[in-house]
Amino acid sequence: MDYNKLNIDDTAEFNDWCIGCGNFGILRAVELTLHDLKLDYHNTVMVSGIGCSGKLPHFLNVKIDGVHTLHGRSLAFASGIKLSNPNMNVIIDAGDGDTFGIGVGHFVSAGRRNMKMTLITHNNGVYGLTKGQASPTLNRGEKTKSLPKPNINDPINPVALALVSGYTFVARSFAYDTQLTVSILKEAIAHKGIALVDILQPCPTYNDINTIDYYKNRIYKLDIDYKVKNNNEKVEKMMQAITKAYEAEKIPIGIFYQNELVPDYNNRIKEDIPNYLDYYPAIQELSINNKSTVDVIQILQKHRIV
């Protein structure tokens, strides 16, 4: 994995994240993953939300398509892309506020659909761009440095919420463990369904509790049999993953759960549109010499009365 071998894009943006930001580790892991899997704009689109994490696609040194969307809505944009062009790999970068605050409805609904996409959540416990308010993943009672009072909300556990929402690949990583993150991302992108990769990430500017040292002292590599091999063990494997997800003294990172027995959404649509995967909306021929290709009579004759 030689970083210098990457095709440097001279149109890439100046990276304005804070020094020491966990995003750098995630950016590097994404770049290495794209490079190793030979993913670029021909086959992959990076979708992001709003916040520090949302800028990630702009900062990539790989020639990529980037769609920097709205706060909380990246999954919605991504689903539209994936539905009209199922051939595209869709990778989403979103923050914890993005995903579990303003966009939590989309997060839960995405689990019900199981579209083949990869969601990377940048989980740092704070809203960085707005100067450090508590995000939905910050523990109750914690007072990070710019909070006027300790946080009085209980946290969402992203891994557990993903599991009960129907995510079929659920993993957690640490922003500074690039090697682990790359290996998880490769599995997630290959996964036949929706994948959550929740990445614990220090915010050196606003989160003085969940620091690098905080995580380094607590994290350990998860080693469980996470794969559902038949439907009978689905609930058991989910329960195992949820139990692990709530461990707090020591924080496990790795893959918690995978189930490829659930049909993905594009294949569900194929049930209704038999040639969907070969002739999807993005490539259908609209017109010949500016004339619509739609056979009109088929539509009108259903309503004929005379």
Partner: peptide
């Protein structure tokens, strides 16, 4: 919110 944004995402693919 998802309806409009999914339609926009789809439009970016040319559909």
């Amino acid at each position: 919110l998802a309806a409009i944004n999914a339609a926009i995402g789809s439009a970016l693919t040319g559909a």
